[in-house]
Design a protein around this nucleic acid. Sequence first.
DNA 1: CTGAACTTTCAAAATATATTGAAACTTATT
DNA 2: AATAAGTTTCAATATATTTTGAAAGTTCAG
Lengths: 168, 168
Amino acid sequence: MKLNEAKQQFIQSWGILATQWGINRTMAQVHALLLIAGEPLSTDNIMEELSISRGNANMNVRELMNWQLVDKVIIQGDRKEYFAAEKDIWKVATCIMYQRKKRELDPMIKVLNQLSDVEGDKRNAEIKAFTETIESIKKFAAQAEKTMDVMIKAEENWFWSSFIKLLK
Amino acid sequence: MKLNEAKQQFIQSWGILATQWGINRTMAQVHALLLIAGEPLSTDNIMEELSISRGNANMNVRELMNWQLVDKVIIQGDRKEYFAAEKDIWKVATCIMYQRKKRELDPMIKVLNQLSDVEGDKRNAEIKAFTETIESIKKFAAQAEKTMDVMIKAEENWFWSSFIKLLK
DNA sequence: CTGAACTTTCAAAATATATTGAAACTTATT
DNA sequence: AATAAGTTTCAATATATTTTGAAAGTTCAG
């Protein structure tokens, strides 16, 4: 397979995967492009490679910087801004985990906490069904958050090797 | 907080969380409704509670059955179909994990495998950058898949208690 | 077999999300 | 200070996704 063909294939597939997980397709494609680039790319490079407008390229590259997945790179003697992605995949994964936890899971947990006590007789079947479900989601979420916090702080080798021991 | 208010709040929040993760809002709301229901609900119940059309209710309830998160319940002497959600949250979580892995992650991994060898000089910087990124994503994905497979098969208590040991 | 009860389908309409591109803004150079 | 180079914004437009609802399909009791 030719390099350019492989690059395009990767960019497309990464974009599709992203949309399936609620991430803007173009943002993911810009990310993919930067992940496989040998050197930092300018906004014009990105526009060209993905056939997208300047506005779109600009907005997504900035969003990726918000997510801390991409950094601005200054090249001496060039007024253009260049961009480079974090390439350590463990760091990429834990970064995404951190961001999504913060943006999406934490607010849900906050809501769950507010739902813990409903008015009325706790022996009432409807109230019991509701409360039990909420409580078990809360318990699960607490464990999941703990797990994610460990991963976010962990060093990759330590994490996987510990995890493998778990299986023995 | 009143029960009905709390129910609505939960359904809304669950729906929002779902859209953020690429899941149809209504499907998630139907799921939420069934998770907190004290007894199986009919299509008419669902339409009423969520103010949605029959077509929408029907399609989402069937999609939830595809995902194996909801079962059809037959009530003797009633021609209507009723629906009930799996309430064990560990089972819900591992079921979702299994489904999303199968539908979304496995296809991506298949693509990654096809991208492993590109034509050309392996010392070329562009080719090297591409290959290295793909390889490290593949390695990460392989570990992640292994982890998910363990979780999918695992019993909840065993998993969390083993995981806690890992931290010591 | 017939008709009532219920479920499913799917084209059209509604809604939500993403993209464009030109104007406004910012920054660096002469 | 004027200009050129580059970046950002955002209203208008385009695209993608979801929802509706009525017609077609199915099932079952009498």
